[in-house]
């Protein structure tokens, strides 16, 4: 098991939103990756976006730019 670390986690209503957000972030070189949805978050999609911690404003700006309404955004240790 790798050591836990703090991450900004975005949960989505649909898998389509998750894939659209990954596509948007990759096209802009934004750091992060899709991970299995942590069990402590309940969401419509089984995938979540895991981004480096700290810059919530940048993350919400990316979501707005992609036109995606997240179901949850949470900074947590995973």
């Amino acid at each position: 098991m790798r050591t836990k670390e703090r991450r900004l986690i975005v949960a989505f209503y649909t898998t389509h939103d998750a894939m659209a957000f990954e596509d948007y972030c990759l096209s802009r070189g934004a750091a992060g990756r899709l991970i299995p949805l942590p069990r402590e978050i309940s969401a419509g999609c089984g995938l979540a976006w895991s981004a480096p911690p700290g810059d919530m404003a940048a993350l919400t700006a990316l979501l707005a730019g992609a036109g995606i309404a997240p179901q949850h955004i949470k900074e947590m240790e995973i």
Partner: peptide, 21 residues
């Protein structure tokens, strides 16, 4: 299998479906 896991194999299928849609 798309949406049945978050490993690269499953995600590759999700990506394929997303792009093809």
């Amino acid at each position: 299998n798309a949406s049945r896991g978050a490993h690269e194999g499953a995600l590759n299928t999700n990506r394929l479906l997303y792009r093809t849609r």
